[in-house]
Simulated scan of single mutants.
Amino acid sequence: MMAMRVACIVAALVVGALPARAEDRSVLVNCKAIVERASKDAHAAREAELTRCRQLIREWALRDARMAVDEEGKPLR
């Protein structure tokens, strides 16, 4: 019974941590394309999708601002 309770707690923690993982750069590129298309065509994307993409772009900008090296390990400054 105790093992089942521990397994449920571990499973809940794993499921809770899944959305917190970092997205790869291809998602950023796709979001930038969606936002650009939406600026040209008002019916290009749903508002929820645009909001999510704008938030993701902001997060990437903040993440890149904190980075001291680029993706290849070369210093940015």
Rank of each mutant, 00 (worst) to 15 (best):
R21N: 02
I34C: 06
A20P: 00
E59R: 12
K74M: 08
D24Y: 04
P19G: 05
V69W: 10
V15C: 11
G73C: 08
D41H: 08
R77M: 12
R63G: 06
S26A: 15
S26E: 11
A68P: 00
E47G: 04
A45R: 03
Q55W: 01
C31G: 04
A3H: 07
A17R: 04
A42N: 03
L76W: 07
L28E: 07
M67W: 01
E47H: 09
E59I: 06
C8N: 05
Q55F: 02
K74T: 05
I57D: 01
R25L: 09
D41R: 09
R66A: 14
N30G: 08
P19R: 04
R5N: 07
L56N: 05
K40H: 12
R77I: 09
V6P: 00
E71C: 04
V10D: 00
R58I: 01
C31T: 02
L28V: 13
A38L: 09
M67F: 01
R54T: 10
A20N: 02
N30Y: 07
E71H: 09
K74H: 10
E36D: 15
E71K: 13
K74F: 09
M2K: 15
E72T: 06
M4E: 15
R58H: 05
G73V: 07
C8Y: 00
L56D: 05
R46Q: 11
M4S: 15
A65I: 03
V14L: 15
T51C: 07
E23N: 08
E23H: 08
D64V: 04
D70W: 08
P75K: 09
R63L: 11
A22L: 07
E36L: 15
I57K: 01
C53I: 08
M67V: 01
A20T: 04
R54H: 08
R5A: 14
A65W: 09
D41N: 15
R66N: 11
R77T: 10
C31N: 06
N30R: 14
A20S: 06
